[in-house]
Nucleic acid binder design. Structure first.
Lengths: 188, 188
DNA sequence: CTTGTCTATGCAACGAGTTGCATAGAAGGA
DNA sequence: TCCTTCTATGCAACTCGTTGCATAGACAAG
């Protein structure tokens, strides 16, 4: 149930509505977690029922009213309890790797376009992360590092950057391999 | 439904029982996909019903009999269809990153043990992958590269190795950050 | 001869996550 | 005026994945 905890962290960093959370999950939190708005709304409701969050109706001009969620004492305690409990190291689930091994039973060259498309997506993500790093952490306009939260957000972002760089390099390796197999002759 | 396709690829590489598949998913296939035996048995049953797989009862000595699954023509066709259909690039789901950002609202130093434990797991995985690479691909006993399947398995393994190396380096970065925050003073 | 371990298969219940659909206020453009 | 877009929330149905439990053959150790 890590979505609960991701929501707690995000709301501690800044209270917000379900809609705002959904947008954060497409951005900064999305570096390491994803969720659709439907899932977020459902979990928010359950967490309010469980007393981990509180809601406040906020009237807005120029747009529909919203419900602003924030973390309660018990919510904070639940997060702390989770932080102190060991978790299992992640296991990968990489569809593209399944495809690459599967290409042995089809035409490997047919995968080249797909792999190049994925590489482009990862290039875009890397550029997006680097722009965010410059804006929020390392650029001339960035605030001086003062609190732990900022340092920790930065180190997580560096993880996202490292992941994208590694992935791009690996996809280059994959492409080289596919081209080599293609040159060696289909069916060889 | 990528588990279906992972099973198709694994059974094309070598037919086997549900139990054997489960063990492969803890090993080589587990480099990029995971599944429990319960899930595997359920999916195997459905795939036989759908005509993608066929079963053969195999009597064994010294151990219980097993059901050996292999891929049918329609199964191969289903895999080919999936290979030619674009898939969405992966999104990360990294619990530990959630914890790291969450540490800002608790004691960052309390995370050090947890992060070190994860780093050790990734070191072990890396060692295991490197040993496998030496055994199957780059060592003196390894068979000479001849078919595409071998090359493709190798490039996927290189991806796993790159992922573990990147993760270990990032966790070192995380540890340095946590130690720095701890030295700067808790609550600072 | 009981206990434990490894091989081997499976059900039932639950929780997590996705997909499709539906509603509605506010703004801007055709 | 209608259409689209953005903000904002939510239900219903379904699939995917995990957890707990159960069974059973073969072997080895105590």
């Amino acid at each position: 149930m890590a979505l609960d905890h991701a929501i707690l962290v995000s709301l501690l960093e800044r209270p917000g509505s379900g809609y705002e959370l959904a947008r954060r999950f497409e951005r900064s939190i999305g570096y390491f977690w994803t969720a659709t708005h439907q899932q977020i709304y459902r979990v928010l409701g359950r967490m309010v029922t469980d007393g981990l969050l509180q809601v406040r109706e906020v009237e807005q001009q120029g747009r529909p009213d919203k419900k602003e969620y924030s973390v309660t004492g018990p919510g904070r305690a639940a997060l702390a309890a989770w932080l102190h409990k060991p978790i299992e190291p992640e296991s990968l689930r990489h569809d593209l790797a399944v495809k690459i091994r599967g290409a042995a039973f089809d035409d490997p060259a047919a995968l080249i376009d797909e792999v190049e498309r994925h590489r482009q997506v990862h290039r875009d993500r890397l550029a997006h992360y680097l722009a965010g790093e410059l804006r929020d952490f390392t650029g001339p306009e960035a605030p001086a590092p003062q609190d732990a939260g900022q340092e920790l957000q930065h180190v997580v972002l560096r993880g996202g950057i490292a992941y994208e760089r590694m992935t791009i390099a690996w996809l280059d390796d994959v492409l080289a391999t596919l081209h080599r197999l293609d040159a060696a002759g289909p069916g060889a």
